[in-house]
Amino acid sequence: MQVSAMDFLVEPVSGDMAVIRIGKALDFRNAAEFKNTTQEQVRNGVQNFILDFTDTGILDSTGLGSIFSLYRQVSPLSGQVVFASVSRPVQVVVQLTRTYKVFRQYPTVDAAQQGMK
């Protein structure tokens, strides 16, 4: 299995909000990369994260764990982590772990931006 895009694209929305494009996979191969990327954002003052799962075919438990770490980091700062455009494979994982109770879901990135204002 070859997944080329291991980097995560970050698009700042405002000083404290950013969109992270998850790409094809978030799993044990690039979870550390995700952590580094988001931690750098947190250091720069970002507390609200919109994770864009449009293209995501794989989300394994290591990947999900890295999202949890981000949540644990920003929730004491009253920050939020929300999911946008959730693909079917991601939906399965979210359902199974019952994490939709913590991560709000929006149909699109735009809707997420509106909802988080």
């Binding site: 949890f68 644990r72 929730s75 199974l96 772990t97 019952r98 994490t99 109770k101 913590v102």
Partner: peptide
């Protein structure tokens, strides 16, 4: 992962579950 209950009448998922540990 949700357990499966199986008998000669067939198999079904034991559906009820709550959130993973360590999050909130």
């Amino acid at each position: 992962c949700r357990p499966i209950l199986v008998s000669e009448r067939g198999a079904e998922i034991v559906t009820y579950s709550d959130i993973v540990l360590g999050l909130t």
